[in-house]
Design a protein around this nucleic acid. Structure first.
Length: 712
DNA sequence: CAGGAATTAGCC
DNA sequence: GCTAATTCCTGA
């Protein structure tokens, strides 16, 4: 009889806790059931992940109080998957299990804080203290949840200052009932897009689909990358899926949370029909429960959903597909951190089922791996890829280079739709005093403050510090500011000035805060009531964006400047994603990539749709610098205020990891984010498992706040 | 140096 | 995430 149970909680706790199992619960305490147990001064419900007979070493022992389920609510394979992901990403096992737990009936409201009229007046009059003005400035831009102010990145002392503002009547809280989505999306979606799908697949794809189906049938792991445009991938997926369903097995289909790539979903809707269960963020709790019940049986189904669908329990899993593999949304960066692509590989390997990745512009890592393993399946498009004209903006005075402006005017005259993509929200990335070169910076984070013209405020995009935009330069007293690094507001202003007849809308998270507002703008754009959308990359993650006859991409080279080994990859993928909105049914449709680096090979490759050209250069760069996929890598950051102590701790950790003898340890180097000081180490190893083992041994003893990012 | 506010460690 | 313990800070 098992006398101990390991329990995980849906809290950011790094490990499982061991409890004694009282005799009365000995039979009921099984892996996968919920149990209530004492945790600190309170009790909490968690999930039993293991029962055993090994008394825990050292740690104190308390008995669990109650077993809440007669039967396991989570099957062993999902418990194990979440456990392995938590160890890989140093995140919470219990939090990872949350999407696998049947939807609870709690937490139906949330709190919002907003500024009152007296608060606005006090802020404008400057009668608030520095700290109060900072918090009030944030609230002036938009309302926030109280927990927003608890985030370290927002403000030290945020909660206290906030309660003072509330006490003085300058701010107020209100409870927002979480309302069920009124317009329910049916479980089987009907897709508005009409397209002629070419279901004939060419030979290489047909052969690959046959391989995948055969592996699914034999219960064998196999990994393939379907490299090609959405319509081609869709027909290849469908061929695999039909076969797997016909053998009575289930398919897990993961897609990024961008509607769903429309060609793929349309193909699924017509090819699989009723046997698809779509999981997505617009489901109401009732629909979510209905979907869960449908997936709970052994019926052959396609379960399609975003990254969290990875944790859907399935009795008869036969195939996993991850479409749009290079989309950033597969990596969850907030707690619990995990990468659904890595999780999909783990799940496919353990379940002994084939794994199919698909993308038109895959990650360098996936492409290299597929090439090496012979898993690459190239599917040429029916049409050649969209090509963008590259335009040099260095000699142009305004934000829109002349060739782009002319095309915009012509497109407007023809009453056709235009989308202009700018990289930033707000008005300008930063202000520059042309007289002395001064740039207002955040006093805590040292990065340039963003100008928000409408509120006349400067905002730090790291820590949300805000202050009124200064009228005169604090250094030289100059009265003229030059806004640099165009945001959507500035681009919109220029279009209005140069082309007053254009009916224009700004599409960013600040202008359009709710889903309803976003849908409304898209409907008007589709219906011809809006000619030009000036959008941040947010637009590319919306469902139902109509195609446009002119796409302008403004200065994507800004994304290349980040000191991140994946900046090139991200920029390429983003440009190709923007270009997808080009209306290919219009023979006069054009795309323009405006840049101050017109000769940059990555931009040229992105404009031409030359993935292989991009890959050849990028993989060489990764090889030379020893980045993934040529090494497994971890960025370890230690955070704190006491700089000397921090540095000592970081050096010790670096030495410790070096002693354990893995590939390479770089640093520690000083980093700053959100007003915090940190020291960062980079550890690299040839083998991912070796790196994970070293980190698992070296990290837990390190006290204090730390973050780990792991890449392969 | 009190007394409260802010931050952080620990939760089995 | 919540609470208790610890550290920090203000103001005399």
């Amino acid at each position: 009889m098992s006398r101990f149970a390991d329990i995980v909680f849906a809290l950011p706790l790094p490990q499982a806790y061991t409890y004694a199992v009282p005799d009365e619960w000995a039979a009921a305490a099984r892996p996968g059931v919920r149990a209530r147990a004492p945790l600190g001064p309170k009790t909490a419900a968690g999930i039993i992940v293991r029962v055993h007979d090994q008394p825990p070493a050292g740690a104190s022992l308390k008995p669990l109080l109650d077993v809440l389920d007669p039967e396991p609510i989570i099957p062993p394979d999902i418990l194990d998957l979440a456990g392995r992901l938590s160890r890989r990403f140093f995140s919470s096992w219990g939090e990872l299990l949350r999407p696998a737990v049947p939807p609870a009936l709690s937490g139906a409201s949330s709190m919002k804080v907003s500024l009152t009229e007296p608060g606005r007046a006090a802020l404008a009059a400057g009668s608030l203290s520095r700290e109060e003005a900072r918090i009030a400035g944030l609230l002036a831009i938009k309302e926030h949840s109280p927990s927003f102010f608890k985030r370290k990145s927002v403000a030290a002392g945020g909660p206290a200052v906030l309660s003072r503002l509330i006490r003085k009547g300058f701010a107020e809280t209100r409870t927002v009932e979480k309302k069920a989505v009124r317009r329910a999306v049916p479980a089987v979606l009907k897709f508005p897009v009409q397209m002629d799908l070419d279901f004939s697949i060419h030979e290489a794809a047909a052969r690959a689909a046959a391989d995948v189906a055969a592996a699914a049938n034999k219960g064998r792991f196999l990994s393939r990358l379907f490299f090609g445009p959405p319509d081609r991938r869709a027909s290849a997926y469908l061929a695999c899926v039909r076969d797997v369903l016909a053998r009575g097995r289930q398919v897990l289909f993961l897609y990024p949370e961008i509607g769903m790539s429309e060609a793929v979903s349309a193909a699924f809707a017509s090819g699989v029909g009723e046997r698809i269960v779509l999981l997505h963020s617009r489901l109401t709790p009732r629909e979510r429960e209905a979907a869960r019940l449908r997936t709970a049986g052994a019926a052959p189904l396609v379960v399609a959903g975003p990254r969290s669908a990875l944790f859907t329990p399935l009795e008869r899993l036969g195939l996993i597909i991850v479409d749009e593999e290079s989309d950033d949304s597969f990596l969850q960066t907030e707690s619990p951190v995990y990468d659904a692509r890595i999780g999909a590989r783990m799940r496919a390997e353990t379940a002994a089922v084939p794994l199919v990745f698909g993308a038109e512009a895959p990650t360098v890592e996936a492409f290299e791996r597929a090439r090496r393993d012979g898993g690459l399946v190239t599917m040429a498009g029916i049409e050649p890829p969209v090509r963008a004209v590259v335009v040099d903006d260095r000699t142009e005075p305004g934000l829109l280079a002349d060739p782009l402006r002319q095309r915009l005017a012509a497109n407007l005259a023809a009453r056709k739709r235009t989308i202009l993509f700018a990289r930033r929200r707000g008005y300008a990335a930063f202000l520059l005093c042309p007289r002395c070169g001064h740039v207002p910076r955040c006093p805590r984070c040292d990065i340039a403050l963003t100008l928000h013209q409408r509120e006349r405020r400067l905002l730090c995009r790291y820590c949300s510090e805000t202050e009124p935009a200064p009228s005169a330069c604090p250094r030289c007293g100059g009265r003229i500011w030059e806004p640099r690094g165009a945001g959507v507001e500035a681009v919109a202003e220029e279009v209005r000035e140069k082309l007053p007849a254009a009916r224009l809308a700004v599409f960013d998270s600040e202008t359009l805060r709710t889903r309803e507002a976003r849908d409304k703008v898209l409907t008007r754009f589709a219906g011809g009531a809006i000619d030009v959308l000036v959008a941040t990359p947010l637009l590319a993650h919306q469902p139902g964006v109509p195609a446009a006859s002119l796409i302008g991409i403004l200065n994507p080279e800004q994304g290349l400047g980040q000191s991140d080994f994946r900046a090139g990859q991200r920029t390429f993928v983003e440009i190709r994603r923007f270009l997808r909105f080009l209306d290919r049914s219009d023979p006069g449709a054009e795309a323009v990539l405006q840049t101050s680096l017109p000769d940059h090979p990555l931009l040229a490759a992105a404009a031409a749709g030359d993935y292989e050209g991009f890959f050849a250069a990028e993989i060489e760069y990764r090889r030379m610098l020893g980045y993934p996929p040529f090494a497994a890598m971890a960025e370890i950051a230690l955070w704190g205020r006491d700089a000397p102590a921090l540095e000592r701790k970081a050096r010790e950790l670096a030495a410790q990891i070096r002693r354990m003898g893995i590939g390479e340890v770089l640093g520690p180097a000083e980093i700053r984010a959100a007003g915090d000081r940190g020291m960062q180490l980079v550890a690299k190893a040839a083998e991912a498992s070796a790196l994970d083992a070293v980190l698992a041994a070296a990290l837990p003893p390190v006290k204090g706040r730390k973050t780990v990012a792991r890449y392969d």
